[in-house]
Design a protein around this nucleic acid. Structure first.
Lengths: 135, 135
DNA sequence: CTTTGTGCAAATTCTTTGCACCAAA
DNA sequence: TTTGGTGCAAAGAATTTGCACAAAG
């Protein structure tokens, strides 16, 4: 939790109790959680926590570049504390989202075009994960 | 409209009046429309059309592989009749979505991994479009 | 007839907003 | 104190569901 506190400062985010708790959860649980998953995980130990605060907090984190919002899941927004260039895989059956690291850096380069100013690249893979394949 | 009729048959989709109208709209308007945009465009000439039918129709089209659902826009689902390998760009300001063709085919190759069975690749670029840059 | 498709209304889910209270500087 | 943060309840928007009627084979 103290680490989260310091971590937030790197992004010029004032660490409140709630913000540190959310960041701490993200740092310790690299599961690309939804708002609801974060809320459900924290509310037992933080009964007064409001879902609005979780929304506010993640909006702020995204704005400050501390986390990435993923649109890979059409149902809910998902959040990733790992802001390095990497891709994501979503299992169509269980819905789990996994990181894919060590891809060729060329994949994350924006194509040269005069029509758009590209500032971000998202790469998603869809399919079936190992666990779900065995069913 | 007759073309849409035939087009649907290629995907083993029974062409009802509504389905043909939706497919016709998609084929003639390559704007990656939302459900609501499709509904709004068609309802003037088809006043009894229901939004539920538009939802049903697009679910069917996606299931049969006639269109691709894009998750690039976190607000609404968007649909693309072009099922060839190409990427998408979304302007952060105006929200418009553009196709990006002629990218290196290697970009659309799934990485070799034993952990996942990858069946689809999505590449999204975000930034500012030419029109919005001039503001 | 029997199956499949359509359309309405209601329900659900996710997210945002308005506003009052609390906390920190 | 003044600003910023939090939390509740209500509102809003997108999508899904249940069910009755219509259309097609």
């Amino acid at each position: 939790m103290l680490e989260s506190h310091q971590y937030l400062r790197q992004f010029s985010i004032k660490p409140s109790v709630q913000r540190s708790a959310v960041m701490n959860f993200l740092l310790k649980n690299r599961i690309h959680p939804t708002i609801d998953e974060i809320y459900m995980a924290l509310s037992p130990t933080m009964p007064t926590l409001s879902k609005t605060t979780v929304y506010n907090t993640l909006d702020l984190f995204v704005e400050r570049g501390a986390v990435r919002a993923l649109s890979i899941d059409e149902k809910n927004a998902r959040y990733d504390v790992d802001i390095s260039a990497h891709a994501h895989f979503r299992c169509r059956r269980c819905g789990a989202i996994h990181d894919i690291f060590n891809l060729n850096a060329a994949l994350f380069q924006a194509p040269e075009t005069t029509k758009f100013k590209i500032d971000a690249v998202e790469i998603f893979y869809l399919g079936t994960c190992e666990k779900c394949s065995g069913n």
